[in-house]
């Protein structure tokens, strides 16, 4: 009887945790790093830099952007392509797997094809060099450089006639 009661408490607690998490709408950063922006646009001021695995809570949305609160209580905007949802979507239960929460980014972080596999691949394929791949990754274009490029090229809002 005592054991059974303990189990009821346990089941109830689990259920509460699930419901709380369901309501929270938590996202996890799936890219190496992303900028939390003050406004829902790329050229807005950066509030903070978020790292892979950081969790944020959705508090709003606007055309193509998510308004979130970080674990440090900072509020700002991020692009949806930088995050993976870990929320259950009840309405999407009958939809294809693609639109559902499927692979668990946290549990799978660092698993599968990772640095260790790359090192092993390099050892087996010595003729394939990663030197230029690493150099390629060092090519950076800043937000200011993109803005100047758009402006000088009369692109987007800097353009004239349509």
């Amino acid at each position: 009887m005592k054991r059974r009661n303990r189990f009821i408490v346990l089941a109830g607690a689990l259920f509460c945790v699930f419901v709380m998490l369901l309501l929270a709408e938590t996202y996890v950063i799936k890219v190496q790093s992303t900028h939390l922006k003050k406004e829902p646009k790329f050229f807005a001021q950066t509030v903070a830099v978020l790292k892979n695995g950081d969790r944020v809570e959705k508090i709003g949305a606007e055309t193509g952007w998510l308004k979130v609160r970080t674990m440090n209580n900072l509020i700002g905007w991020i692009h949806p392509s930088a995050v993976r949802t870990i929320k259950i979507n009840l309405l999407a239960m009958n939809q294809p797997v693609k639109s559902q929460t499927s692979a668990d980014e946290i549990a799978l972080a660092g698993k599968g094809f990772n640095k260790q596999v790359e090192e092993s691949f390099k050892a087996r394929n010595k003729e394939i060099s990663f030197v230029w791949v690493d150099r390629m990754l060092k090519i950076k274009v800043s937000t200011n450089e993109i803005l100047a490029f758009l402006k000088k090229g009369k692109l987007g809002e800097y353009g004239g006639a349509k």
Binding site: V31, R84, L108, G112, N114, K115
Partner: peptide
């Protein structure tokens, strides 16, 4: 579709 972002990178 379930290849993670990190796996896609590698």
């Amino acid at each position: 579709g379930e290849i993670t972002e990190e796996e896609e990178y590698y």
